[in-house]
Design a protein around this nucleic acid. Structure first.
Length: 428
RNA sequence: GGAGGCGUCGCCUAGUCCGGUUUAUGGCGCCCGCCUGCUAAGCGGGUUGAGGAUAAAACCUCUCGCGGGUUCAAAUCCCGCCGCCUCCGCCA
C-alpha cells in the first residue's frame, strides 16, 4: 500500500508514477474520491456517536430509578442508536472501498528506475568473459543426463511437465549451493531461517501477489492457504502486526524454502530443461530496515548476489529493471543475469527489490523511532541462490568436451573437495 | 480428533459472576523533571495503537485476541472463529 498521505498531498506525483509503469491513473482518481467519501462518513459517525455517549452518561447519572426524565432520555437515545448503527455501517463501507482503491495502486517506481517495459532495462555492468568452447557445447538437459544429475523424463511421469528429479550429483549440487549460500549469509550477519511455504491469504495479499500476479499462485483446494512462489511472502509476514525497535534494524534474514509457481502466462516459453519450473528451492535474503537506509541496503543486497555469482565463476550482467517490469510492490529492482551458453543469451538468476514501505503498510509492520514515535519501515528482498538456474549455468559454463564439468573452487568444499563432475558410466 | 483452561494499552496484573459517572486499576520497566559530590533511593509527571479535525494544538472517535448479536449503553451478557496451555486419543 502506498502512503495515503502522499496520495492526498501530491496526487500528481502518484499519477506520474503510474504513467511511468505504463498504467492509467484511473485508480488514483478512484482512491482520491474514496478518501473524501471516507472522511465524510467518519465525521458523520463520530458526531452521532459522541451525542450517544453524552446521553448515555446522563442516563447513568440518573441511576436505576424510573422517572419521566429518564424515560424521555431513553426514547431519544433509542432513535439515536439506529442512526449510530447506520452511520457506522456507512463508515465501514466507505473505509473498505477506500482501502481497496488504495491497495490497487502499485508502489511508485523510483525516479532512477528506467521508464518503459520489459525491453527497456539498462545494463549496469557486465562481469567476466563469455565462455568459449572448442567443441560443440551441450545444454544442461544433455549434461544433466550424462552426469546422472537431472531426471526430467521421470519428473514429467510423476508430476507432469515443468517438474524434475535432481539425482545423485544433482541432488548434491543443490545442497552444496544451499549450504554455500547459507554460509555466506551467516558470515554477513544474516539470521538463517527455514520458512513455511504454505501461507494464509493475508501474507499473500500483503506482499502484493494476489493482484496482477494472482494467476501465478497455487491455492490449496478447500483450505485458506496458498503455496508461496518465494519465501519473501512468509518473511514479509514474519513481523506483521509488530512494532520493531529501530535500533535493532536492519534485521537480515536468509530464508530457505521451496517455491511454487503456476507459470500460467508462460505457455510454450522455456519448455526445455529446468529453467522455468513449477517448483524449485531457494535461499532468499530478506531485510527489514529504515526507509532512509533502504537504498544503500539495496546496493548491499546486490553486492552479496554478485559475490555469490562470482564464486560460481559465471559470466553475468547486472540490469536495472524498467518501471513497467517491476513487481507490484517493488520501487526498484536489479537482476543478475548469467550467460546461458545453449541459449546464447543472458538469463535471470537472481533478483533484488526494494519494496520500501509498500509491504509493511499492508502487513502492519512499523518501527519505534529513537524519540518514541512510530514510523514506517522498509523491506527488501534478494535471491542468494535458487537451486535450478544456478545448476544450469554451472553445468553449461564449466562443461568440457567429454561432458565432464569443472567445479568452481569456492563450491568444492561443499562437494567433499570434488574438482570435476564426471559422466556416469551407464545412465539408468 | 476429544475434554478442559486461558487471551486486558512493552511485561505482570485488577475489573468480567451482578452491563452504566471506566477518560480500563495497580506494579515493573522506560522517558522527563526535582532533590543529590556521582550513582542508587526518594518525590512529581508522562508512557497502547489507529483515525478524524487543526496552521499547530486543545479536542473528537475507535481500540480489552478477531468478527457478529442483544441493549439507550458491552472489557463485562449471547453466538461464531482464531491463538496459546494442559490432559486424552491417533500417527510419525
Amino acid at each position: 500500500m502506498i502512503d495515503p498521505r502522499l496520495l492526498r498531498d501530491d496526487p500528481d506525483r502518484v499519477r506520474a508514477a503510474q504513467a511511468k509503469r505504463g498504467l492509467s491513473s484511473d485508480v488514483v482518481d478512484r482512491a482520491l474520491a474514496a478518501d473524501a467519501a471516507r472522511r465524510e462518513a467518519i465525521g458523520l459517525f463520530e458526531a452521532r456517536r459522541g451525542e450517544q455517549k453524552k446521553l448515555g452518561k446522563e442516563i447513568a447519572g440518573l441511576g436505576k430509578a424510573q422517572g419521566e426524565e429518564r424515560t424521555a432520555l431513553l426514547a431519544r437515545t433509542k432513535t439515536l442508536a439506529t442512526e449510530v448503527k447506520e452511520a457506522e455501517a456507512a463508515q465501514a463501507a466507505a473505509e473498505a472501498e477506500w482501502r481497496e482503491a488504495v491497495l490497487s495502486i502499485p508502489n511508485p517506481a523510483a525516479d532512477e528506475a528506467p521508464a518503459g517495459g520489459e525491453e527497456n532495462f539498462v545494463v549496469l555492468e557486465t562481469v567476466g568473459t563469455r565462455p568459449e568452447f572448442d567443441f560443440e557445447p551441450r545444454d544442461h538437459v544433455e549434461l544433466g543426463r550424462m552426469l546422472g544429475a537431472i531426471d526430467i523424463e521421470r519428473g514429467a511421469k510423476v508430476s507432469g511437465s515443468r517438474f524434475y528429479f535432481l539425482t545423485g550429483i544433482g541432488a548434491q549440487l543443490e545442497f552444496a549451493l544451499v549450504n554455500m549460500a547459507m554460509d555466506q549469509a551467516r558470515n554477513a550477519g544474516f539470521t538463517q531461517m527455514v520458512a513455511p511455504s504454505l501461507v494464509k491469504p493475508r501474507a499473500m495479499e500483503g506482499t502484493g501477489f494476489l493482484g496482477q500476479a494472482a494467476d501465478d499462485v497455487y491455492r490449496i483446494e478447500g483450505q485458506d492457504l496458498y503455496l508461496v512462489g518465494t519465501s519473501e511472502v512468509a518473511m514479509a509476514a514474519y513481523h506483521s502486526d509488530e512494532i520493531l525497535d529501530v535500533a535493532s534494524l536492519p534485521l537480515r534474514y536468509a530464508a530457505f524454502s521451496p517455491c511454487f509457481r503456476k507459470e500460467a502466462g508462460s505457455h510454450g516459453k522455456d519448455t526445455r530443461g529446468i529453467f522455468r519450473v513449477h517448483w524449485f528451492d531457494k535461499v532468499e535474503m530478506f531485510v527489514y530496515t529504515t526507509l532512509e537506509e533502504s537504498y544503500a541496503e539495496h546496493q548491499r543486497l546486490l553486492a552479496w548476489e554478485k559475490e555469490f555469482m562470482d564464486k560460481l565463476e559465471l559470466h553475468y550482467r547486472v540490469i536495472d529493471v524498467a518501471a513497467g517490469d517491476l513487481g507490484t510492490s517493488a520501487q526498484r529492482k536489479f537482476d543478475c543475469e548469467a550467460w546461458i551458453a545453449s541459449q546464447g543469451r543472458f538469463r535471470e538468476l537472481t533478483s533484488t527489490s526494494n519494496c520500501t514501505d509498500f509491504q509493511t503498510r499492508r502487513l502492519d509492520t512499523r518501527g519505534r523511532l529513537a524519540d518514541g514515535s512510530v514510523g514506517p519501515v522498509a523491506t527488501l528482498n534478494g535471491t542468494l541462490s535458487s537451486t535450478n538456474r544456478p545448476i544450469i549455468a554451472l553445468l553449461e559454463t564449466h562443461q568440457r568436451a567429454d561432458g565432464s564439468v569443472r567445479v568452481p573452487a569456492a563450491l568444492r568444499p561443499y562437494l567433499g573437495g570434488l574438482e570435476v563432475i564426471e559422466p556416469v558410466a551407464t545412465v539408468a
